[in-house]
């Protein structure tokens, strides 16, 4: 019955038209690693295009923090709210990017559980492209979050001494930093049993890290042991680099340290995540 050509056209027009679209043995050459990664990046961009609502989350969180901390605590932390804004804005950009990296974990986890990643795993392309493309797509979110935060800062009276180039350099460093941190949550996203677990666990780790840094205040008034924590915290390094770059006082070491930390994170977590992903459900 499966070999009779008559039955193909019988019930639906689709059956007849279908024969013309079977690609008759056409077999393109294997996609390159770059083209597979770019395709996954394209997928992330399309998702972004179809659900612009997710922008609201991305944009609102840093804005609320910026307004709240500047006007609620700014006067108490510094001599005036204007002065505190000069200090806090480069810090809140770190916060904005790092909070965003959690989305990387939750969205990866969602994709894995929806089965679309299983489809990818049955296709003959360089498999790490799935993760690399998704994480590159997340870079778009960082750009949006950074651009809106800095813009609002400028409206409120943020005046970076480093000028446009200083701000641009800070934004670039923060994008690199965010991309590196997102690999940690990508690993978590691959192993977690559900997306809610990812965001829950991430927040428990992230909030202490963000607050025990020099993002909000300088550590001078803290007890000695906490100063040690703050000084060792990569969030502090990122905030310092961002601050110095925006205000035009950055030394080689400030930026170099952040880039080193970023490289270290990627070196550890990218292979780990890819390994976890490859072995996911394979046993």
């Amino acid at each position: 019955m499966t070999t009779s050509p008559d039955t193909v056209d019988s019930t639906t027009a689709a059956g007849g038209r279908l024969r013309t679209v079977l690609s008759a043995g056409e077999r393109p050459a294997r996609a390159t690693a770059v083209s597979a990664t770019l395709t996954h990046l394209w997928r992330a961009m399309m998702a972004f295009k179809h659900f612009p609502v997710q922008l609201i989350d991305i944009v609102l969180m840093p804005l609320i923090f910026l307004l709240m901390f500047t006007y609620l605590f700014g006067g108490a932390f510094a001599d005036s709210t204007e002065e505190y804004l000069q200090f806090y804005l480069p810090g809140v950009t770190v916060q904005a990017v790092v909070m965003m990296t959690v989305y990387t974990g939750t969205s990866l986890n969602t994709d894995i559980h929806k089965g679309i990643f299983d489809r990818f795993r049955t296709l003959p392309f360089w498999q790490p492209a799935t993760l690399a493309g998704s994480l590159l797509g997340d870079v778009l979110r960082y750009v949006v979050a950074l651009a809106t935060t800095v813009s609002l800062g400028l409206l409120l009276g943020f005046r970076p001494d480093g000028g446009f180039l200083g701000v641009l350099a800070a934004v670039l460093v923060l994008i690199v930093f965010g991309f590196s941190v997102s690999w940690i949550f990508a690993a978590l996203g691959v192993v977690a049993s559900e997306p809610e677990r990812v965001s829950g666990t991430s927040m428990i780790v992230l909030y202490p890290l963000l607050f025990m840094s020099n993002i909000f205040v300088m550590p001078e008034t803290m007890p000695g042991w906490m100063q040690a924590v703050v000084d060792a915290n990569p969030m502090s390094h990122a905030a310092t680099a961002s601050r110095e770059l925006m205000h035009g006082t950055a030394g080689f070491w400030d930026v170099g340290l952040v880039l080193c930390v970023s490289a270290g994170l990627v070196a550890v977590f990218a292979p780990l995540t890819m390994r976890l992903y490859r072995n996911k459900n394979a046993h």
Binding site: R43, M46, H50, I116, T122, P124, F125
Partner: peptide
Amino acid sequence: ASVDEGLTGTENLVMMGRLQG
């Protein structure tokens, strides 16, 4: 092995074609 619910029909097929070269 599912399809991507967040993309259109065309986009899903374009993606599959790209990933296969």
